[in-house]
């Protein structure tokens, strides 16, 4: 999705970045026009694939946090840029500064250069802690989230909708305004899943499950991709995230259910060889519990299920190892338990 909106988008992105930071700290008066000038000077750049133009609260929070931290950091950066030229000019050989070859210490200055960074780190650390808790990818963004199970493959993503019973390849359809819980695993090497305009990335690893909660408050097509190098097709491993209104989403599900193709264990096995998918595929149905079976195929002891999606005994994949779905084990297969 090449952005074609040109300079105005650039400006919006940068000003948005600043505006996000403004309410939280007093912005130095000169910074705004300076950065606005910079923005005008930038060649046209689209942010269709970037968190600089967030389309949901998570990405927006990340952008504003970016701004807050940047502004706070100016406290230590600006003095250097101001003081260094002055010092260089004044104390250059032949300059006006008094030569004091043995001057080596001053308690006041010492307190300043240790004290300011310490105070700054306290401020930064507080901001970090709050943002990290609020922006925790595991934190659900509301009741009744739409659960989508994501399987990272070479070089495509498989999306399973347990609630709707449909599945897609390289297309993530989402309703606007409803909390989304993505559960991720990998059927191959480790990958890193991101939809920049909605939320940050999280790794998808075989035999384990990670989670990404997000919410879209804009409709439209947003690019998502893998950012962790995984071979020849890596550069083109992206997919479209299509956010639509709740009604449109219902309609989309209904259409999906009319498709011919279904996804069973055999069809999944055919997806495993590395390949780039040019056109998204929609499956009208999939074998229930497929996601857990995929995890279990790598880590039988860790197969757990979230309610209602326990592994199906007797399913015809080697993955179909029966494992009791207890809450303890559900916890076990999150990476945190393995740290």
């Amino acid at each position: 999705m090449p952005g074609s909106q040109g300079g105005s988008v650039t400006l919006r992105g940068i000003v948005g970045l600043l505006a996000a930071a403004v309410p939280k700290i007093a912005l130095p008066k000169i910074a705004l026009p300076a950065i606005a000038l910079l923005a005008i000077a930038l060649p046209g750049a689209g942010f269709a694939g970037s968190f600089l133009e967030p389309a949901g609260p998570i990405a927006a929070g990340q952008l504003s946090h970016f701004g807050v931290i940047s502004m706070l950091m100016l406290i230590v950066i600006v003095p250097m840029f101001v003081a260094l030229p002055i010092v260089l000019y004044r104390y250059r050989r032949g300059g006006k500064g008094t030569y004091r070859p043995d001057w080596e210490f001053n308690w006041g200055l010492e307190l300043l250069i240790w004290g300011v960074p310490v105070a700054l780190v306290v401020a930064l650390g507080t901001a970090l802690w709050r943002q990290t808790i609020v922006g925790d990818p595991y934190r659900a963004l509301g009741p009744d989230p739409l659960v989508v199970e994501v399987v990272a493959l070479d070089w495509k993503f498989l999306f399973l909708y347990p609630e709707q019973g449909v599945a897609t390849l390289d297309l993530l359809a989402l309703p606007e305004g409803r909390p989304i819980t993505l559960k991720l695993t990998s059927g191959t090497v480790m990958q890193s899943f991101i939809i920049p305009r909605l939320a940050g990335q999280i790794y998808a690893m075989a035999g384990m499950q990670t989670q990404l909660n997000l919410l879209a408050d804009e409709t439209g097509d947003f690019t998502g991709r893998n950012t962790q190098y995984n071979g020849l097709g890596f550069a083109t491993q992206s997919f479209t995230t299509r956010v639509m209104s709740a009604d449109d989403f219902e309609g989309w599900v209904a259409t999906a259910k009319t498709q011919q193709a279904g996804l069973d264990a055999a069809a999944y096995a055919r997806l495993l060889p590395p390949a780039v998918v040019n056109e998204p595929v929609i499956y009208a149905r999939f074998t229930p519990g497929l996601f857990d079976q995929i995890i279990a195929s790598f880590a039988p002891g860790m197969a757990g299920g979230h309610a209602g999606h326990g592994p199906q005994a007797g399913a015809d994949t080697p993955a179909a190892i029966t494992a009791p779905a207890t809450s303890h084990q559900q916890h076990d297969h999150t990476p945190e338990a393995a740290q």
């Binding site: 880590a299 039988p300 860790m302 393995a338």
Partner: peptide, 10 residues
């Protein structure tokens, strides 16, 4: 320590 707990597999 990590593997003797999580790496038992089958």
């Amino acid at each position: 320590a990590a593997m003797s707990v999580q790496g038992i597999a089958e």
